[in-house]
């Protein structure tokens, strides 16, 4: 809701009872086949990806999934992908390109997983590859930011033709806590930080960072409106010649 303060929006984006990426995948598609592994060294459970049918047409879905409880959250690193997770997402997206399937990316992450192993395994490089290769994918590519859109870890799956946000979601260069700490050396100034970051869907829409605000869906809600909307968006994008699709996508970011 637009009358929430920025900080209230941050809390709403992080609420644990939000609809999950997995629920969206299974609500939007039929015949979903989940794919695993980066074909290099691991299978990061923070990333879910696979093939499903959207209105009976094949699409590829990649998403960042938070855990429903503590155990699951530990396994999924609280929805913060490792480099292996980003590489898993990219290999699934490249496969979508081979089979001319458009890509739906669902983002809900505080950011890429910040630990020592992730550094050793090239977290920066993995995100960089997702960005540069993602921008060149020869298929329509749509992102929905479902909850948190934390920094580069979110951008890694948000370099497509359209970026949409749920009402209760945020997207920013870093967390309000991080911003307060870096800017004012005072992490208690989170509310002020949230305001300054302009991380609400309304602010981002006005700035042209995103294309549309999607009304919030709760767990168990009927998703047929969202399904029809995505079907229409993918159909429109699929009508463009591939070169023009990729040109327009790159232009989209050239403008900032």
């Amino acid at each position: 809701m637009a009358d929430k303060t920025a900080y209230e929006r941050v809390k709403a984006a992080r609420r644990p009872d939000k609809i999950t990426t997995a629920e969206l995948v299974h609500g939007l598609t039929t015949s979903f086949f989940e794919q695993h592994g980066d074909r290099l060294e691991a299978d990061d459970p923070a990333i879910i990806g696979g093939i499903g049918l959207l209105n009976d047409k094949p699409i590829t879905v990649v998403g960042i999934q938070k855990g429903a409880d503590t155990d699951e959250n530990i396994a999924r690193h609280f929805g913060s992908p490792t480099p292996e997770g980003y590489r898993k997402a990219l290999r699934i997206m490249k496969q979508a390109e081979k089979f001319h399937r458009p890509i739906l990316a669902l983002v809900n992450t505080p950011g890429a997983w910040p630990d020592v192993d992730s550094e050793y395994h090239g977290q920066g490089s993995a995100v960089a590859q997702n960005i540069i290769q993602g921008m060149q994918l020869k298929v329509p590519y749509i992102t929905i930011i479902v909850g948190e859109g934390g920094s580069g870890g979110a951008l890694a799956l948000s370099c497509g033709d359209r970026v949409f946000m749920f009402e209760d979601s945020i997207y920013s260069v870093l967390s309000p806590e991080g911003y307060a700490s870096i800017m004012w050396k005072d992490s208690s100034k989170v509310k002020e930080a949230a305001e300054e970051l302009k991380l609400t869907p309304e602010a981002l829409l006005e700035d042209g960072i995103i294309d549309k605000i999607i009304h919030e869906y709760e767990p168990g809600d009927d998703l047929s409106n969202l399904r029809s909307f995505l079907d229409q968006e993918f159909s429109e994008l699929a009508e463009l010649p591939i070169d023009e699709l990729v040109d327009r996508r790159n232009q989209r970011y050239r403008n900032f």
């Binding site: 499903g52 049918l53 047409k57 094949p58 298929v139 159909s235």
Partner: peptide, 10 residues
């Protein structure tokens, strides 16, 4: 079936 659908985007 997922890879031989007649109908698709594009």
């Amino acid at each position: 079936s997922l890879h031989t659908k007649e109908q698709g985007y594009g």
